[in-house]
Amino acid sequence: MQALPSTSANSPHARRPRVWGWVLLAPMIAWLVLFVILPMVILFVYSFCTRDDLGRVVFEFTFDNYRRVGDPIYLTILGRSIAYAALTTVLCIALGYPVAWFIARQREAVRNTLLLLVMIPFWTSFLIRTYAWITILKGEGLLNGLLLAVGFIPEPLTLLYTPFAVIIGLVYAYLPFMILPIYGSAEKLDNALVEAAHDLGAGPVRAFSEVIVPLTWPGIAAGVLLVFVPAIGMFAITDLMGGARVPMIGNIIQNQFSKAFNWPFGAALGVVFTFMFILAYALIQRRGARDPHS
């Protein structure tokens, strides 16, 4: 997937930069420093600050914000966010892997058409796609209407604002982000290797688990990064599908900045989340690096 750092960007004819090379690149470097690095540094500093009675941030060093992150209430929410994100990731792999594999094994014309069909939901706003599920799951929504009309149920079920709805929303939003990178790996996979496994006596299950899955691991890893990490911090889908009943770490962070006005605590949560993200990223990258085919 393109989101992962690519190998050297240089052309073989690249020269050492002189004055102009640096002058022209300077705005981009400045942009990255100003709007990516510096804000992160400030967020980090904020996380050690306190606030006054009016909610203004006071630069007075304290560890209290991090101590508060360790509070069981927040640890539970953090744990729940990770659990939901993990379940979403697993479901996305389970649903998406066969699709990616199947698309990769098709003739070019069929493959391109199927890929287009994955690209459309990939590029459709997740907000719109989440709203589609609200219209289906809501008390007066389509699914309840259908079930009532058929006489399956005597009264509308509560489908929205449940953990079930949150998971559906997350899986629905992130599934294309899992299919595309796995497809990228599956497409490069040489059929001869699969046949060799078969000729050497591996059954379909064994060929799949011991040859195909390890060879497509880079795609799975990229997919996990594109699904698991954003899903942990997502607050809009959990808000729309779960209401206030299933708060996630993203909702808590957003609350600190929009309603509770406790920016230092929100910053501390953000910093903890960032470190979790870096850790997950490093772990997955290392696992990928150990694989000789990545």
Partner: peptide, 15 residues
Amino acid sequence: MIMPEIVMGISLLVF
């Protein structure tokens, strides 16, 4: 591109 959007959002807000 890969940074969690919420972290980018709050860091830019404080900035």
